[in-house]
Deep mutational scan, measured.
Amino acid sequence: MGFKLLSKLLVYLTASIMAIASPLAFSVDSSGEYPTVSEIPVGEVRLYQIADGVWSHIATQSFDGAVYPSNGLIVRDGDELLLIDTAWGAKNTAALLAEIEKQIGLPVTRAVSTHFHDDRVGGVDVLRAAGVATYASPSTRRLAEVEGNEIPTHSLEGLSSSGDAVRFGPVELFYPGAAHSTDNLIVYVPSASVLYGGCAIYELSRTSAGNVADADLAEWPTSIERIQQHYPEAQFVIPGHGLPGGLDLLKHTTNVVKAHTNRSVVE
């Protein structure tokens, strides 16, 4: 069995187990497998329904001669939608809004960016022009300005110390501490036991640490421990890039980060 097929099978099995364990909360999309990078042309966006009122959005972007996937989250909030992270750029984010209108038909009224990198804030200006209120932590807003990236308009308070959590509509926002970046936030959907790890969490097929220019490698494993301790009931975990899975993604990420750190020390 090929690795790609095995990865998709694991996603399907995880979703099936969740649907059985929580039949009222989960209505997993039966329309197909989780979209992969090879299936999404740059400039297009796919939506994948995880649970009743919960979707991931998947886009792709060219970077350094390669094409990478990027995940975000959409959560229903009454007759409105909360968006977590842009679709990595203005063109993708405009396509995301169009796809949401086509498939869901509810307005996106608020959006949260989970850290300051372009795959999370690139497209904020498109959201703002569409009347979406954009939010991020003060740290993310400051770092985005320093980096020359787009800056969300509103500040999220109460997320300055490791372990801080605040309720934001249908989700809980959690600051686990520094990891992929010093400002990275985690998003949890309690009604569906869905954990969105953003770039602080890796997919299972990833074996290298990737972009760690703004990471705190020493603190990252401790931050992941905080996530595990705060959300032990999480059933569906979405990484910032690639295929979702279960809580095993947290341990896998820790292993990859520690291996990278150990290699760096040896070198």
Rank of each mutant, 00 (worst) to 15 (best):
L249K: 10
E39T: 03
N211C: 12
S16L: 08
L10H: 11
Y188S: 12
N262P: 11
E267G: 07
S137R: 04
G197Y: 01
W55I: 04
A95N: 06
Q49Y: 02
S223R: 12
G198C: 03
H180F: 00
A209E: 11
R128N: 01
D164F: 09
Q49L: 09
I58D: 10
F3K: 03
N92A: 13
I100Y: 00
P69L: 08
S137P: 08
R128L: 13
K4W: 05
S113W: 01
A179G: 09
S162L: 08
K258P: 14
A136V: 11
F63S: 06
A179P: 02
E33F: 10
T253P: 01
F174L: 07
P138L: 06
L97T: 01
H180G: 00
S160C: 07
N149M: 15
E80D: 13
V166F: 06
I238Q: 05
S191F: 11
T36V: 06
T93D: 00
D248G: 07
E172I: 15
G123L: 02
Q103K: 09
E33T: 04
A95E: 14
Y188K: 14
L9A: 07
V108E: 00
H117K: 00
E39D: 14
R141S: 11
N262Y: 05
V237D: 03
K91H: 02
R141M: 08
A259H: 07
L13E: 11
L243I: 14
S155H: 00
V75T: 06
S191G: 11
D214T: 07
G242P: 04
A178P: 12
F26Y: 09
R46V: 06
A178W: 10
Q235F: 15
N211K: 07
H252C: 12
L204T: 04
W55E: 06
L24F: 04
Y34R: 09
E172P: 01
L143Y: 03
P170E: 12
Q235E: 15
Q235P: 07
E219S: 03
A136E: 10
F63E: 07
D248A: 04
E147F: 13
D125Y: 10
T114M: 00
S56C: 08
A213T: 10
V265S: 07
D125N: 00
I84V: 14
D248H: 08
H230D: 15
S38G: 07
S223D: 08
P190R: 09
L96A: 08
R46E: 08
L82S: 12
G89Q: 15
N92G: 13
I50V: 06
T14L: 12
A218C: 07
V42C: 06
N262V: 11
Y34N: 05
A192H: 14
T140K: 00
D85N: 11
A218M: 14
V124Y: 11
G131I: 11
A133H: 01
A179C: 15
T109C: 09
A94H: 14
E150Q: 15
S16H: 15
N255D: 02
I74H: 00
A21P: 08
Q49V: 10
I224C: 07
T36N: 13
A98P: 10
E99P: 00
V257W: 08
A15V: 04
D79V: 12
S7L: 06
Q228G: 11
T109W: 13
A90K: 12
E172R: 11
R120T: 05
H180R: 00
F116S: 07
L250N: 15
P221A: 10
C199F: 04
P190E: 11
I186H: 00
G242I: 02
P232F: 15
S205C: 12
L13W: 04
A90F: 15
V266W: 04
L204M: 10
V187S: 13
P23N: 05
G43T: 09
P244M: 14
N211Y: 15
L13S: 04
E233S: 08
K8S: 13
R128S: 12
I84K: 00
T93R: 00
E39A: 09
E39S: 08
P138C: 01
A215W: 11
Y135G: 12
T253V: 10
G198K: 01
G163C: 06
T207D: 14
I40S: 08
E33S: 07
G169P: 09
N184L: 03
S162V: 06
Y135D: 01
D29R: 09
M1T: 02
N92I: 10
P23M: 00
V121P: 01
P107C: 11
E99S: 12
A98R: 09
L47M: 08
G2P: 05
I238N: 05
V37N: 03
V187W: 01
A111G: 07
E267D: 13
S137L: 05
L127T: 15
L106M: 06
R226E: 09
I74P: 03
T153R: 12
L82V: 15
A87H: 00
G245H: 12
S139E: 03
A111S: 06
E150A: 06
D164H: 05
L217D: 01
S264A: 07
W88I: 00
W88P: 00
D85K: 00
I17T: 12
Y231D: 11
E157G: 10
T114S: 10
A215L: 09
G240P: 00
Q103N: 10
A259E: 06
N255K: 02
L13T: 06
V108S: 04
E80S: 13
T254E: 14
D64C: 13
V237P: 03
A66P: 04
I20L: 03
E80Q: 12
D79N: 08
P239H: 02
K102M: 13
S38P: 07
N255Y: 04
G65I: 05
L185S: 13
G105L: 06
A21H: 12
H57N: 13
P244L: 13
A129M: 13
G246V: 07
Y34F: 04
A215M: 06
P170H: 01
L24V: 08
H57D: 14
V11K: 06
V112D: 00
V166I: 14
F3V: 11
M1E: 07
F3L: 09
I100H: 00
L247Q: 03
L82R: 10
